[in-house]
Design a protein around this nucleic acid. Structure first.
Lengths: 331, 331
DNA sequence: CTGTTAGCGCATTCAC
DNA sequence: GTGAATGCGCTAACAG
């Protein structure tokens, strides 16, 4: 049933139906009410394509993740998708999902969107971005790291882990720890590693380079790094790991040396991986407030779409999820 | 630029352009070639909404996950979304994402789709399904467990974990294990628990009910259950856990009793959680072949959409991902 | 406030 | 093989 048939059924014109459906002011409230009720009753739904054609709006937002996420970012991805979806839905938009790199060229896209959410990632460069946005003709928000790429036409939501690290170190300091070890990965580019001395100082902690050690990615790597660390003459009493997986390895290493976590040694991870809460002990970890990021992103995007707002820029800092892997310093 | 303007630019009629774009036979191949090249050159893209209006097709498929996944199914969800997205894209469709339960009523959906992929889940009932599909007017494929719900108008892809359990037990048997323990959760509804005696027999393993023990969901629960199991007079040499998280607890428990995995005790998990590959030892686990499920689902769905095919039904069994948490029986 | 009507951009007849 | 004309279902502008 189309709008004119439906209008005939209920003895009004198609114009009136359209006004009711679109919540226009120039209609008698009682008429609107009646139309809406009848629509429900007779199961009339307007044809979305025709609506789109004439308004030029699709109420579609596309989420692009143009990289092949490694296992560790899966959690981040699904949580982000979940948050973005619920946020777009709250604004009556639908979320289109596109994962992974696109084969070059061949973009016969049977689908127009009102806005774009671009997740930036390690393997994504400026040209990719430009291609994805078709030269920024569509309102776009980019979710990326603190070193924001320079795309003046797009909104930016920057997720910055440094505040989380800051809180973790402060937390250690408050628990009386003096010697804090760091198990990193990807030295030297790893942004955190270079900022560590300053962050330690900020928390009132002494900085000892021999306590910062590079590991790989598996829990075994964390295990081995921790083994070395704990066999130092003056070992750390607290450990900050670059990822939760490394942290799990660290806990294992401590246990294998007869040290219990958190009583004798405290551990903080990073990522808030799904298992972290279910591990024993439940892992304290640095986490990004994903719903907050999603909220900021969609707010900025819809501002651009609906109110022609200027590109916005917002920074979302990580925080600390306190569970049970930390305790006061034994020393 | 619309189709008629573009046509004028290149001195043909809009009809010809349309024929070229839609790959119709009744056009001179050279003309088609020319039109396509010019379109590329001038950056002409046809308006998707108008195309949709006139053809009634949107090339949109919606993925519905009408339950609030617990952390453990996140991995399953993201992997499934990834696989479905890549599969739909291969067929030139776009994937629309909808997660979580919908607020009842209020379905003013600004969006028409050609097909629906419904992930069934623990909290989903028949009425939910019916509401989501608008009484099965849209081609639908349901991805659910082996106890398929009876929706004759929809295609079904059933994921069945039993074959995975079968392979795990067979694997244990081949390694010479005689006493295999089971750490479950959610007794007695847990389908696997009731089938266990038969499956054990099938693998040539003796069935001892005292070796099947119920645990909760955290790794601590797995730890405690395993502790009990290993202090039996005649303890198992191999352990099958209902989830990877329980398996991690089991490994910890074994270690704490001075037993090394896999040398002295073998462990198999279930879910292929992201950390499983990065743990030490890397965990052997029962996993679903998600890309296979996605392929089957999209194939069935597109058959219904494009060829008016009958609802299909396919079963996808789980398999075993062998890593390094199992070894020959020490006894 | 409501009915009438002219497009929106495209695919698809029908003529040629 | 190609061009011209009709209609898809809706919104918005105009007339009453």
């Amino acid at each position: 049933m189309n709008i004119v048939e439906f209008a005939k059924c209920i003895n009004v014109s198609s114009g009136t139906v359209s006004r009711a459906l679109n919540d226009r002011p120039d209609i008698n409230p009682k008429t609107r009410q009646m139309v809406l009720e009848k629509a429900q009753e007779l199961g009339f739904t307007r044809n979305a394509s025709a609506h789109q054609l004439v308004t030029g709006r699709t109420f579609l937002i596309r989420l692009e993740c143009p990289y092949n996420a490694d296992v560790l970012s899966d959690r981040y991805l699904i949580e982000m998708a979940r948050a973005l979806e619920s946020e777009t839905r709250a604004h009556n938009y639908n979320l289109l999902l596109r994962l992974g790199r696109r084969p070059e060229g061949a973009e016969t896209d049977m689908c127009m969107v009102d806005g774009l959410v671009l997740m930036s990632g390690p393997e994504v460069n400026a040209d990719d971005m430009k291609a994805l946005t078709r030269n920024w003709r569509t309102p776009t928000v980019i979710i990326d790291g603190p070193d924001q790429s320079d795309f003046p036409k797009a909104s930016h939501i920057c997720v910055d882990t440094v505040p989380g690290v800051r809180k973790a170190l402060q937390y250690f300091a408050n628990l009386g720890h003096k010697r804090v070890g760091y198990i990193g990965s990807g030295f030297p580019e790893s942004g955190i590693r270079v900022k560590l001395p300053a962050l330690m100082a900020e928390a009132g902690l002494a900085w000892d380079p021999s306590l910062a050690i590079e590991a790989g990615v598996t829990s075994r790597d964390g295990f081995e790094a921790t083994h070395k660390l704990l066999q130092l003459d003056n070992p750390p009493t607290a450990l900050l790991a670059r990822t939760d997986v490394l942290a799990f390895g660290a806990i294992e290493a401590a246990n294998s040396l007869g040290l219990s976590v958190p009583k004798e040694i405290s551990v903080i991870g990073h990522d808030n991986v799904e298992i972290a809460a279910l591990a024993s002990p439940p892992l304290t970890t640095i986490a990004i407030d994903i719903p907050q990021v999603a909220r900021a992103a969609i707010r900025a995007l819809i501002g651009m779409i609906e109110d022609n707002a200027e590109p916005a820029m917002e920074v979302c800092g990580a925080h600390l999820v306190v569970r049970r892997s930390c305790a006061p310093s034994p020393i």
